[in-house]
Design a protein around this nucleic acid. Sequence first.
DNA 1: CTAGGTCCTGTGAACGTTCATATCATGCGC
DNA 2: GCGCATGATATGAACGTTCACAGGACCTAG
Lengths: 340, 340
Amino acid sequence: MPAQRPRGVSIQDVARAAGVSRQTVSNAINAPHKLRADTLERVTALIEEMGYRPDQSARSLRSGTRRVIAYTTPETDPDNPNALMSGFLEAMVAAAGEAGYRILLVRPRPGQSKARALEDVIAARTADAILLSDVLEDDPCVDYLHETGFPFAVFGRTRPGMPQAWVDVDSAQAMIDMVGLLTSHGHRRVAYLGTSAALPWLRHREAGFRIGMRRFGLVGHEAFVDGLDEVMAVTRDLLNRSPRPTALVLDDDWLAPGAYAAAQAEGLTVGVDLAVTGFNDMPYTRLLQPALTTVRLPLRRIADALVSRLLQSVEEGTPPEAGLLLAGDPVLRASMTTVA
Amino acid sequence: MPAQRPRGVSIQDVARAAGVSRQTVSNAINAPHKLRADTLERVTALIEEMGYRPDQSARSLRSGTRRVIAYTTPETDPDNPNALMSGFLEAMVAAAGEAGYRILLVRPRPGQSKARALEDVIAARTADAILLSDVLEDDPCVDYLHETGFPFAVFGRTRPGMPQAWVDVDSAQAMIDMVGLLTSHGHRRVAYLGTSAALPWLRHREAGFRIGMRRFGLVGHEAFVDGLDEVMAVTRDLLNRSPRPTALVLDDDWLAPGAYAAAQAEGLTVGVDLAVTGFNDMPYTRLLQPALTTVRLPLRRIADALVSRLLQSVEEGTPPEAGLLLAGDPVLRASMTTVA
DNA sequence: CTAGGTCCTGTGAACGTTCATATCATGCGC
DNA sequence: GCGCATGATATGAACGTTCACAGGACCTAG
């Protein structure tokens, strides 16, 4: 038998203690301007003293608002761990917190689809809005949320027919900028090592690289790996193509340790004979020797934008008109080199 | 003015449609055995068809149970990013989910103490239980939760006077085992590179290393670094002490990239001339060249144990009698060497 | 002194569920 | 056929809050 946990201080208790009505106490919290200064002070003092906080469930039931954002955590692939998630969540918790919202982590039960898990969240009125990340081009979750009209936002992008409630990094531009950065350091022969997974953001980076190469008139090759094991071999091969590259652009930081080792195996010293750049600014990139030049995602700005879009959808009932692209910040570290 | 979101299907709607009472619908969900087979079938079919889910707030308000575990996310120090958090959270979400609970992320508002944030959670009846991690020896949060008697559990350890509702990795034993592993690979001279931060788990690892060294009769030196910048210099110095070590034990994976570079600077090849071991099995350790031998934390078992302890506290009202130490799994990778 | 406004505060109802309990039907033994 | 137990379903109340509105105090102008 579950132990009966004593209920806490209720609004009625405070009202009685203060000699006012429930509504007055409620107003002290939700609409302080409606109270006379002395009453307000007396009531708030008592609220503080008695440790009263409105019961979240009761408040939600009555007002219909939960002050909760549900986030469906993406399944992490052990082969390509989403080390980003930690930082992204951190930023989201902070941004949501400042707006008075909390993040609830939701995961489909075993055998349950992600869309079904969202259906539960909506039907059980667990959250006011839903946050998605790592969505694919034709993600069924987006379609489902679009149909229901439930407020949501996406870290990533949604396709044209869908609500444009998304915020993303301008990966293509960041790559163009990275090529520009290499150009300004004298590089002319730049190779690209990518991941072959069919993820939209990887394709954006690839496209950006190509645009940058054309724009700055550089030459180079591209190669793609399918898993960790291939990194060494493919990178060594890439470094041996002619013209031999002076810089190696990676589409993700996770390729860096392998690339460093491949360079060393080829007798090249990263940061001296070869420049290497990454993408994402994962925590460990600063630990590498030499530290990796990469693109930092503006996680806090992304989170702020997502929260403001979510709140707009919740409060006004209309999703944002257009997506928002935020610039990535290139971080120059020791893996960059200058070519005479 | 906030748009009025239409309320969803209520228990009354289903009851009317099925021609039964509210209570019967409620029983179909919460106590199916109380219904006659045909009624149950009819009602559940209708529940499914109408997409009815009990309103979480109403249910919580009435029953007093939220099915939510609050987790106060530790502040991540940018200098020592807690890459572990991602994996731990993942495991917690999964473990809690299987028990029908969800994880709510809570963070103190700016200028608010962590204990105060917990007070809010408890007073507002936002969660049934609280999960803490990264607690220090005399963490005020633990004292506070102890006083209030609110159900909680800790990833880490609590000091003797406190409720022993904790689960932790037996870091000391893992270090002893690691020294044993090195011994079995023929190592006799082993150096220890630690982090000087005053964190309990680091001290457990250090103590374990010393016990292991004594037990296996090995010799070696210890050195500690205070920040990233010192790793190179301190490691090189350590490698030059006499007797020159054949293995280097790190107290955390994050030291590995620097240690690798230091070894290289000393003309040593990790995985050939020098064995290096880490702790935590962070995602990037597999990417290093050579891949790092390290200690994997049994995150899923930790999460399961934490959830079962939390539920015990919630349902029976009494915290567990004693803490639980789980063994870490040594992961043998290419950074290990064999000494003749 | 009173009408009419402006604040401020109080009261009943409602949100959707589950608890406690009542009612009803059914089956069984005698 | 009757009393009684058993199991299935229904009813009223309660959880703690906020909404909508009613009421009261106070002030000012006529």
